[in-house]
Simulated scan of single mutants.
Amino acid sequence: MRQATWNAIEGNPAVMRIYRSYRQLPEEVRAPARWLVAPLWHTACALVRRRATDAVLSGPFQGMKLLLSPVSSRHLLGYLLGTQELELHPIIEMVIRQNYGTVINVGVADGYYAIGFARRMPSTRIVGFEGLPEHHEPFWQTARMNGVADRIRVEGFCDTADLQNALAAAGPRPFVLCDIEGGEKALLDNSRIPELNQADILVETHDGLVPGCTSLLLERFGKTHDITSIYARPRSARDFPSDKLPFLAKWMPRTAVELMNERRTGVQEWLFMTARSGPGRDTSP
Rank of each mutant, 00 (worst) to 15 (best):
P241D: 01
R263N: 14
F247H: 10
W140C: 06
N12I: 04
D226H: 12
T255G: 11
N146E: 05
R173T: 14
T160M: 01
A118D: 01
V56R: 04
L259T: 09
C45H: 05
N146T: 08
I227Y: 08
L259A: 02
L271W: 12
G63K: 08
T205P: 10
Y231Q: 07
A52N: 04
F240G: 00
M94F: 01
N165L: 11
L132D: 09
P138T: 02
H135M: 12
G182N: 02
K65S: 11
T205Y: 05
R49K: 10
D243Y: 00
R2G: 05
D179E: 11
P138V: 04
V148D: 07
F221M: 02
L187T: 03
L209F: 13
Q3R: 15
L177E: 03
L40W: 14
L67W: 09
T83C: 13
R151F: 04
G147D: 08
Y79L: 05
V203I: 10
R238T: 00
S284A: 12
L217A: 04
P285R: 15
R151P: 02
P241N: 08
V71R: 14
T142K: 00
I193C: 09
P285N: 12
G59I: 07
V176G: 02
L196S: 12
R220Y: 09
A186W: 07
T265D: 07
G63M: 08
L216Y: 01
R119D: 00
A170G: 07
F221A: 04
R192T: 02
M121C: 15
E85Y: 10
D239H: 14
L167V: 10
E184F: 03
A33F: 11
R233K: 06
C158L: 08
Y112C: 01
Q62F: 03
L40T: 14
R49A: 03
